[in-house]
């Protein structure tokens, strides 16, 4: 099991009242599986994904990645874990506008002090999504769909065990959303990539080997 979350609870306080968004969620992610999580806006999908991605801490509960208790890790160790083990894809591409497509893909590989030259892998990934000729183009010169595909490739460059995608199609038209869904299916099939995708798009949810829905702060499996 790559990722195991037990009894995850997350509450927010505004000083007067406490709002509990996640209520005792148990979640496991095995290798090579796509898990989709549905739910309306404000249901806590992004909060759960942030906790699974170590960007946020649960109010209660345990999170283990590769049997490593996340709550025991310091900031530097968490950053290193994120860099090596987790890839993120967001609703907005968040590509760095000062870097070309190829450079954007390579950024995560440049962060560790002892970094390896993954330029060839980045070019292979670009070729995989048919964007080789756009490698030297800046984000402002790419379409919305192309930007998001580059963002997906960026999340894959360090060969992470987990890719977390937070409503990745939320900002795309139907055609581009469909392309992105095919890309996720492809990288899972070809690279045995584990994915956790939050969405409110049923088409995206359907690609999950296991499909969940957050209802009243609880994670409920939709398929068996």
């Amino acid at each position: 099991m790559i990722l195991k979350a037990e009894n995850i609870t997350k509450s927010f306080s505004n000083g007067q009242r406490i709002l509990t968004v996640l209520r005792g969620i148990d979640f496991e992610l095995p290798e090579g599986e796509i898990v989709t999580i549905m739910g309306p806006s404000g249901s806590g999908k992004s909060t759960l994904l942030n906790i699974l991605g170590t960007l946020d801490k649960p109010t209660a509960g345990d999170l283990k990645i590769n049997d490593l208790d996340i709550s025991r890790l310091r900031d530097r160790e968490l950053a290193d874990l994120r860099n090596r083990t987790i890839g993120f894809v967001f609703q907005f591409h968040h590509l760095l506008p000062e870097f070309s497509a190829l450079e954007n893909i390579l950024i995560p590989s440049l962060i560790p002090r002892k970094n390896s030259n993954l330029a060839d892998r980045a070019l292979e990934l670009l070729d995989y999504v048919g964007l080789t000729e756009w490698k030297d183009h800046y984000p402002s010169e790419l379409s919305g769909g192309e930007k998001l595909r580059v963002a997906v490739l960026r999340s894959l460059i360090n060969r992470p065990q987990i890719v977390l995608a937070d409503e990745p199609t939320g900002n795309l038209d139907m055609a581009n959303a469909s392309n992105l869904i095919q890309l996720f299916i492809g990288i899972n099939r070809d690279f045995k990539q584990s994915l956790v995708i939050t969405t409110h798009n049923p088409e995206v949810a359907d690609i999950g080997h296991r499909q969940f829905e957050i209802v009243a702060g609880k994670l409920i499996q939709r398929n068996s």
Binding site: L55, A79, F90, F92, I107, I111, P112
Partner: peptide, 16 residues
């Protein structure tokens, strides 16, 4: 802010 945030998600530390 966004770019700094995304760098943090990619593993850049606070000292970084």
């Amino acid at each position: 802010v966004r770019e700094i945030g995304i760098l943090r998600t990619m593993g850049v530390t606070r000292p970084g």
